[in-house]
Design a binder for these strands. Sequence first.
DNA 1: ATCCCGAGGG
DNA 2: CCCTCTGGAT
Length: 217
Amino acid sequence: MNADAVLRLLAETYPRARTALAHETPFQLLVATMLSAQSTDAGVNRVTAELFRRYPDARAFARLEPEELESHIRTLGLYRNKARHIIATARKLVEEYAGEVPRTREELERLPGVGPKTANVVLANAFGVPAIAVDTHVHRVANRLGLARASDPLRTEQQLMAVIPEALWAPAHHWLIWHGRQVCHARKPRCEGCPLEPHCRYARERASTREPMIGGS
DNA sequence: ATCCCGAGGG
DNA sequence: CCCTCTGGAT
């Protein structure tokens, strides 16, 4: 593997890759992240622009009826679960945290509809807590590049944090996800034109064996 | 037709 | 561990 090269390329391509969820407060980032499952940033940003204008904070969301929220987020998929969870979380925030978002992983994961991935995104992007959330894409890309080698997401996160300088953890998280979606697909990766191809173990195996051993997920 | 930046529930 | 929820992108 070639961690230095990967990190250098990461720094170069990151500004173009950044597809952050639009938000102005930790609560808004929490909601946007909960909406992002099985959806695109563009789609989420499109609905939250209107949503956050009308319902800017946890207190406003806590008063929402599910049907009302569903009508805003229907195009994002999984809308019933998302609406139910977001409202339940908003109500819990109002009742137990004075409408604010808690800052610990344990408290975040106790909110309805908030799991390890969502908690990590909020911790890293709203509260500056060092973390690299490992999802399907992060895991696959890291494996292919040789930055991490594990079937266990926790182990992968630790390996990534060991290889990547702390200042780059947040960018790396965004970049790995973006790259996994746009370029390094599970099935049909677009290795042609990928700036990492010369450093990528997967690309090498793919070129030589026609059936690479390093897979997705 | 197939896959998805996830969580809850059986 | 496996299933389900959903529309949208490819």
